[in-house]
Write a protein that binds this DNA or RNA. Structure first.
Length: 280
DNA sequence: CTCGGTTCCTGGCCGC
DNA sequence: TGCGGCCAGGAACCGA
């Protein structure tokens, strides 16, 4: 599932291919993909004639800064479970789950393909803060790559939660960008059991967790994102990270550190993978 | 206010 | 081989 590293890989690809080219039109194939404006008919006309100055990422959200305009306007994208943004020629045959097509000059196209239809796309008009339209941004925590993502910050974020650490890590208002894969991986690297209540974590463990989060995300970005799920970068290429996952999706397989069998349990409806020998 | 459960959706997989 | 049902999960929403 696209988590921070996959979204970052997509962002880099978008910045490589889509900038400073006029949007000439488009086609909405599934209305509910467009989260804003409410009237889908207005979506394509709002974008037509603009170009993308740059793509930003906040947590798992992608934000395209649109020009020209006296005031900036924005295009927002969340891939959710199965969303893919592909840069291709308009002649390329439509994928079965194509939800949105944005046409660019020279017959190029930015295509949104999303099997399970949870993905969302927003248009944010000028004069409005993006948070007022893309409401998920309003309660988003710091990005782990922010210089402000310190031990003090993470400790403070976890202090206010009475939940188990695994559940807290999936909450985007505590840390932005983690999903089920990298939450399990970061907990393994920091040797913390997913069932540990946040309040029981020692300062040393929180620092270890903070470091592990940054390392796990960095390693995946360096590998081009995960092999899991149907993640593709904008040119349609899968990543390489899944092959060296420590625990994710490895239930009943030997721990890569101690050989104990990896266990799998359900926490708040999500599967959690861990080694009960390495993690305490 | 906090938090867990449910929901959205499709396709892969398991067991009979 | 065919098919029913379960499972995967990000985040909004609902209700305790």
């Amino acid at each position: 599932m696209p988590e921070l590293p996959e979204v970052e890989i997509v962002r880099r690809g978008l910045n490589q291919f889509t900038l400073h080219q006029e949007i000439t039109g488009g086609d909405v194939l599934l209305n509910r993909t467009i989260a804003h404006p409410i009237s889908v008919d207005q979506f394509i006309p709002h974008l037509t004639g603009s170009a993308i100055a740059t793509w930003h990422r906040r947590g798992k959200y992608l934000l395209a800064e649109l020009t020209p305009s006296p005031q900036t306007h924005w295009l927002g994208v969340h891939l959710r479970m199965t969303g893919q943004l592909l840069w291709l020629h308009q002649d390329q045959p439509l994928q079965k789950h194509t939800r949105l097509r944005l046409y660019f000059q020279h017959q190029q196209e930015l295509r949104f393909v999303d099997q399970r239809t949870f993905g969302k796309i927003w248009y944010v008009p000028p004069h409005l803060p993006v948070e007022t339209i893309i409401t998920g941004l309003a309660k988003l925590a710091l990005d782990p790559f922010s210089p402000l993502f310190t031990l003090e910050y993470l400790a403070h974020q976890l202090q206010k939660s009475r939940r188990l650490i695994k559940t807290a890590l999936l909450d985007q208002s505590i840390v932005a960008g983690l999903g089920n894969i990298y939450a399990d991986e970061a907990l393994f690297k920091s040797r913390i059991l997913p069932t540990t209540p946040c309040a029981d974590l020692q300062s040393q463990q929180i620092e270890s967790l903070r470091t592990a989060i940054i390392e796990v995300l960095s390693a995946s970005i360096a590998a081009g994102g995960t092999t899991f799920s149907n993640f593709l970068n904008v040119t349609g290429i899968n990543g390489n990270y899944g092959n060296d996952a420590w625990v994710y999706n490895r239930a009943s397989q030997p721990c890569r550190v101690c050989g104990n069998l990896i266990e799998r349990i359900k926490l708040a409806g999500r599967s959690s993978h861990f080694c009960s020998h390495c993690q305490k």
